[in-house]
Design a protein around this nucleic acid. Structure first.
Lengths: 128, 128
DNA sequence: ATGACTGTATTATTAATAATAGTACAGTTA
DNA sequence: TAACTGTACTATTATTAATAATACAGTCAT
């Protein structure tokens, strides 16, 4: 499914949440698609099951996946009014990063390009 | 100068680098302006000097400040061709965040607004 | 040149967190 | 019932953040 960098300063469970989130954002994982079970992924990545569970718990807390005991973990359908709090959070982070971009000389055009690219990346995975 | 959240999951030295970086990006701190000394800031924030030093060292590594033994620490003038590597890094991070924004339904117009806002925030502090 | 500032480096200790290990229990389904 | 699922808990180890206490060298005004 993907690789981990065990000697990164970034915790393993965080690398996991980031990569799975990315696959959801880019529609590589479709809504209601089942994720590998905690134990399966644990074995594949040779990582402790608790670490996988921690990542899944975090993804569920953020609303990206949902889990059902006995059934498995699944990608959440992107809800329309998805969490005003989360939108505000992303807005905040975007503003911070844009400030850095401005400082580095990024232009409005370049930013627009990036947004278009993100749109495309999402589109690629949809209904194919 | 600012406040810290000692019981945040985010390390103190990282809160420091983030806030100082922000003040530089927003031109609240001007190029070549002197930062508080390690010991002064340490006393003001009641934080260990080593923690301040760690933050300053990181800021210097990233090119935002420069330090001279005996003189002090100062804001770096924003270099024009500032580090292609850093630009690539910010681009990467922006793309990731934009993907999340797309997922949450942000429009191109909203993104444009944010960029304008970042431009203004930088402008505010300049030559006043 | 001395005193009072600067940054920098080092070592040791404590506190907090990430990751592992092992086990247990409950829901789902063929 | 068997074999999967997620979930919870306790304990242990490894890593990192933060503190503490010194020490040393550069700058500069007196």
């Amino acid at each position: 499914m993907f690789e981990l960098d065990v000697r990164s300063r970034k915790p393993i469970y965080e690398q996991l949440t980031d990569k799975i989130k990315e696959m959801i954002l880019y529609s590589i994982l479709q809504p209601d698609e089942q994720l590998p079970s905690v134990r399966t992924l644990s074995a594949q990545l040779t990582v402790n099951p608790n670490t996988i569970q921690k990542a899944y718990r975090e993804l569920e807390r953020e609303g990206y996946i949902y889990s059902r005991a006995g059934k498995g973990s699944f990608v959440s359908p992107a809800q329309q009014g998805m969490n005003a709090a989360k939108r505000a959070e992303v807005r905040e982070e975007l503003l911070r990063l844009m400030a850095e971009a401005v400082y580095l000389g990024f232009t409005a055009a370049e930013i627009g390009e990036l947004f278009k690219l993100a749109l495309e990346k999402k589109g690629e995975g949809d209904q194919t």
